[in-house]
Design a protein around this nucleic acid. Structure first.
Length: 937
DNA sequence: TGCGTCACG
DNA sequence: GACGTACGTGACGCAC
């Protein structure tokens, strides 16, 4: 077919694909020889998705994938510093380049590259030719340098965000139509590509100027007319540099391409050569997926998938030989005899992967439906115990399904195994199963947990859910639970799943867990996180399971009364607000509120966010209230009450367990990258305390009859850890002497005595101390203290001058992260920082996170150690640990034992770092007690 | 489902 | 007057 009207050309920005793939994936190597292939794998997946998603009549008629040939191009002759800021190519990426070309050809996509030209120029040229021939063009890329090409039948498509980029989107980004984009880029320059532009002019200002003067040449000729002196001078002084910049950013759409559009016609991939390539790369999952789509048999491949390697330098990947997944091999156990054979097998092996199926994600409400076991990869069984026939009546009641062992009988047989010290029970998220078994009188131990192994090795790189781990590390996508239960209103519970289907799903989970364990176990050591896993992760399972099952007593009546009071107050405020607005509207809608404030009432200074809605955050409303506007002040009051009511007084009532009368949160051990816990369903780590009204909610968290609540919290733990790791003599001294640390900081910085310090000065020093922990920036501190940015920067400079060790610590930490891709806490916990070497705004986030992680993480490690020791230390005391709130532990204890508990728990907490780490600052714990949490805190 | 908002350390 | 920033979480209501 000759290219012309009705044709549609897809141009893929291949080089961008490679870099995205490289950075998005952990470093993978080919199993047989260790060749790095992560980027190739990602590239192939993206290319295949692109092809597969664009089949049919709306798809392309012609397609090509375009690459950069080498770093040298004609632009280097225009400006010798062009792209001089580019970081060195990572060592393990370069060898993957030729393979991506090979991959492109294997998928039967034209592979284009030209010496001396960037991919962007080739794309520009082909796009122009296609447009002139009357066809349409889609450029698969989100690169802003290509946006100048949009319009007249050419658009872009951001494959990551699945979003087309047309004229409107370009205008949104650059503030001008696509044909003026190069003018804006020439003025604004680009630090990544080292395009100079005009100093002090960014995209916003550039767009303003271009829109005012029409185009760049006119602007430069009439630069004298610009009102702002700085801008005027910048343009006059740099006119030549700006013209050079324009030549740099202008794509050459007349490159001497040697291909005709007709040659780019879409072709079906040749199955045989494509299969050969994918098999040679050892991409198991993709090979299978492509084979299915092409309806051919996948070639026989080595079974093990690419093996992940951590960033640690001295480790080698561990290879595991495993059979393919086969759901047909899973056994359904319906009688004691068959179960007995499995138990024999487990005893022979000494370990078993276990998984439970239940009716709910809430372990306190869930009913046990079945148990699956696996001891050999590829072989697993499922024991259905609580399945029901699908034909229940309207109320959901129905008879048990046939062919199941009695629950008690099965548990009686399994209990000795599950409790046997000599048999390791392996699970994924074992805290869940631990609680389910505990509710049936089985104390499962000892355990290993693949989720926690992944967390110890890969925290910060990805999540640790089983499906994701299986896909990533076993190259296998498990059966989705959705396919059994459905979603939304018609969703069923697991006990309604037909046993035949349940076997495949449930046994597969045990199979996967066992395989993950085999893959992870030896790598813990290589990643040097064995101690972290053994001392900070695994022991948490039992401790937290106990706390969660105990729960905390909540007085629902108090909450209900508060809800009613809030509702009344809110109704009054709502009436006042609508009166002030002069129209009824939904006070809870930020969108409607913004329109009332900044349009109907005509208040000036409304800022629109990226979604086009006005910002109405508390800071904005506070400013307006300070200017004397009543309505925003009322809205702030209303919002406080609305938050308290919906999130706390209303929602908490629904979390009171029908049998225990207590609230049972669930802690995720592997949720936060830094090692902190996270509390969900409900979140009991964010119960209000800062506002007076909010704090009253804590009055509803009460001790049982004859009991008291005791709260112990670490004082300034993060600053103490900072003083230790950054080794700051003045701070360490102050902590040893028990001096007010914020006052000390202020004193050192501003040369004022600690005695009789102005509270405002102390407040500023406190903000700086917090800022340091967060990876301080002038902007952030300025916003927090509501002072000019220059002043904030002045504070920071003085702080670093006074405490140079802090600056050193920050620089060293960031350098370590850049070198290794992770940081470590004092206790060895690894937190990966994959974005640390990124360019653009990501880099700032990653930098600050890297500075914060070792401090926040070490504090998290300390309290974990305390929690793990607590059961043994408090054995015999009539006390239970109920909650953890990052630096606080809450206990419920019999009245007579309060003092003893405080003494014991304080000793454990203050000494929690020992003996692993000898802190050279003391840890101090404050304690309180009362009938409810408000009093105890 | 994504976003804005706001509760906590 | 370049860009966009304090770190880490979870839950709610709105609007699509």
């Amino acid at each position: 077919m000759s290219f012309g009207k009705g044709c549609h050309l897809h141009l893929i920005d291949g080089s961008a694909y490679i870099f995205r793939a490289y950075h998005a994936l952990p470093p993978l190597t080919r199993k047989s020889d260790g060749l790095p292939i992560g980027a190739v794998a990602g590239f192939c997946n993206m290319l295949w998705s692109q092809l597969a998603n664009n089949k049919g009549k709306d798809g392309p008629t012609h397609i090509a994938c375009v690459f950069d040939y080498s770093s040298k191009t004609f632009r280097d002759d225009i400006y010798d510093k062009y792209k001089a800021n580019r970081p060195e190519l990572p060592e393990d990426l370069r060898p993957q380049f030729p393979l991506t070309r090979e991959a492109t050809k294997a998928f039967s996509v034209a592979c284009l590259e030209m010496e001396n030209y960037e991919a962007d120029d080739i794309i520009a040229t082909l796009a122009r030719q296609a447009r002139e021939a009357g066809g349409d063009v889609t450029i698969i890329s989100s690169d802003k340098d290509l946006m100048q090409l949009v319009g007249g039948g050419v658009e872009m498509f951001d494959a990551m965000k699945n979003k087309r980029i047309g004229i409107d989107e370009v205008e949104e980004k650059f503030g001008v139509k696509p044909d003026r984009v190069i003018d804006v880029q020439a003025l604004a320059g680009d630090s990544v590509d080292n395009v100079p532009g005009a100093p002090g002019i960014g995209v916003k200002t550039a767009a303003l100027l271009i829109n005012e003067f029409g185009d760049l040449e006119t602007l430069l000729e009439r630069a004298e007319e610009i009102k702002q002196p700085k801008r005027r001078q910048a343009l006059i002084d740099n006119a030549e540099l700006i013209r050079v910049s324009k030549r740099l950013v202008t794509l050459d759409d007349h490159t001497p391409v040697e291909w005709s559009l007709d040659e780019l016609e879409v072709k079906e991939p040749e199955a045989e050569s494509l299969m050969e390539f994918l098999a040679r790369m050892e991409f198991r999952t993709l090979t299978k997926r492509v084979a299915d789509a092409l309806k051919v048999e996948p070639p026989v491949t080595p079974d093990a998938p690419a093996v992940p390697v951590s960033h640690e330098k001295d480790e080698a990947p561990v290879e595991v030989d495993v059979p393919p997944f086969d759901h047909g091999k899973y056994e359904c156990i319906r009688a004691a005899e068959a179960l007995g054979r499995w138990i024999d097998l487990i005893r022979e092996r000494g370990y078993v992967a276990v998984d439970t199926e239940t009716t709910s994600l809430d372990e306190m409400l869930a009913e046990l439906v079945g148990i699956s076991l696996s001891v050999i990869p590829g072989e697993a069984c499922y024991i259905p115990l609580g399945h029901r026939r699908g034909d229940g009546d309207l109320f959901g009641a129905s008879e048990p399904a046939e062919g199941q062992m009695a629950l008690d009988e099965a548990l009686a047989l399994l209990k000795p195994v599950l409790e046997d010290d000599a048999i390791l029970k392996i699970g994924q998220n074992m805290k869940y199963d631990w609680k389910i078994f505990a509710r049936h009188g089985v104390r499962i131990a000892p355990i290993d947990d693949t989720m926690l192994m992944s967390y110890a090795m890969y925290s910060g790189l990805h999540n640790h859910g089983m499906d994701g781990l299986s896909d990533r590390y076993l190259g296998h996508r498990p059966i989705e639970i959705k396919s059994l239960l459905g979603t939304g209103k018609s969703q069923i519970t697991f006990d309604r799943v037909p046993i035949d289907e349940a076997v495949k799903y449930a046994a597969e989970d045990a199979d996967i867990t066992l395989r993950l364990w085999q893959a992870f176990k030896p790598n813990l050591h290589r990643a040097q996180v064995t101690t972290v896993y053994e001392t900070l992760e695994r022991p948490m399972v039992e401790v937290l399971a106990g706390m969660e099952m105990t729960g905390i007593l909540v007085d629902a009546q108090t909450l209900s009364r508060m809800s009613n009071a809030f509702a009344q107050k809110m109704a009054g405020l709502e009436a006042e607000i609508q009166e002030l607005a002069g129209a009824p509207f939904n006070v809870g809608s930020p969108k409607q509120l913004g329109e009332i404030l900044f349009e109907k009432m005509g208040i000036q200074g409304g800022q629109k966010g990226k979604t086009g809605a006005y910002a109405t955050g508390a800071d904005v409303l506070e400013d307006l209230a300070a200017e004397g506007h009543d309505l925003p002040a009322r809205v702030l009051d209303w919002r406080l009450l609305s938050k308290l009511k919906s999130t706390y007084t209303d929602a908490l009532q629904n979390h009171v367990h029908p049998e225990t009368g207590r609230v049972h949160t669930s802690y995720s051990i592997a949720g936060a990258a830094t090692g902190r816990l996270a509390s969900t369903d409900p979140n009991l780590q964010n119960i209000p305390v800062r506002s007076e009204e909010g704090r009253r909610i804590r009055e509803a968290f009460v001790a049982g009859p004859g009991m008291r609540l005791v709260s112990l919290d670490y004082s300034q733990i993060e600053l103490r850890i900072l003083a230790h790791v950054a080794d700051i003599p003045e701070l360490k001294e102050a902590f040893r002497e028990g001096i007010d640390i914020h006052a000390l900081t202020a004193s050192e910085m501003f040369n004022v005595p600690v005695e009789g310090m102005d509270p405002m000065v102390r407040r500023q020093a406190k903000a700086i101390n917090f800022g340091v922990i967060y990876g301080i920036s002038g902007f952030g501190l300025a916003r927090n203290l509501r002072i000019p940015r220059a002043e904030a920067q002045g504070f920071i400079d003085r702080y670093f001058e006074r405490f140079p060790g802090i600056k050193d610590y920050m620089d060293t930490t960031v350098a370590f992260a850049k070198e290794n891709g992770f940081v470590r806490t004092l206790f060895g916990r690894k937190i990966h920082t994959p974005e640390i070497n990124a360019k653009g705004p990501h880099a700032g986030f990653a930098r600050r996170a890297a500075i914060n992680a070792p401090i926040q993480g070490a504090a998290a490690d300390v309290i974990r150690r305390a929690m793990i020791r607590m059961p043994a230390a408090t054995r015999g005391l009539p006390a239970k640990m109920l909650l953890q709130v990052h630096d606080e532990l809450l206990f419920e204890v019999e009245e007579g034992a309060v003092d003893k508990l405080i003494a014991t728990a304080r000793e454990v907490m203050e000494g929690a770092a020992h003996p692993a780490v000898h802190l050279n600052v003391p840890l101090v714990v404050d304690a309180g007690q009362g009938a409810n949490w408000a009093e105890a805190h």
